[in-house]
Amino acid sequence: MTAATPLKPTESELEILQILWEKGNCTVREVHEILEKNKDAGYTTTLKLMQIMSEKGLVIRDTSSKTHIYKALVNQQKTEQHLVNKMIDNVFNGSAARLVMQALGNHSASQDEIDSIKKYLDDLSKK
Rank of each mutant, 00 (worst) to 15 (best):
M1S: 04
T2F: 13
T2P: 06
A3T: 15
A3G: 14
T5W: 01
K8I: 13
P9F: 03
T10N: 12
S12M: 13
E13Y: 05
E15K: 10
E15P: 01
L17T: 04
I19H: 01
L20H: 02
E22W: 03
K23F: 13
G24A: 06
N25G: 10
N25Q: 14
C26L: 07
C26I: 07
C26Q: 05
C26H: 02
T27S: 13
V28W: 04
V31G: 05
V31T: 11
H32E: 05
K39Y: 06
A41L: 04
G42M: 08
T46V: 14
L49T: 03
I52P: 00
E55Q: 13
E55G: 09
E55C: 07
K56W: 10
K56E: 14
G57S: 12
G57C: 14
D62A: 00
D62V: 02
T63G: 10
K66H: 11
T67P: 02
H68P: 00
I69F: 03
K71D: 09
K71S: 15
L73D: 07
L73N: 11
L73I: 12
L73G: 06
N75H: 09
T79R: 11
T79N: 13
H82P: 00
L83F: 05
V84K: 11
V84C: 08
K86M: 12
I88K: 09
D89E: 15
D89G: 09
D89K: 14
N90Y: 14
N93E: 08
N93F: 15
G94N: 04
G94F: 06
L99R: 05
M101K: 05
Q102R: 01
Q102S: 05
A103C: 10
A103T: 11
A103N: 09
L104T: 15
N106P: 01
N106D: 11
S108L: 05
A109E: 04
I114V: 14
S116K: 09
K119H: 08
Y120P: 00
D122K: 07
D123E: 07
S125Q: 03
S125R: 02
K127F: 08
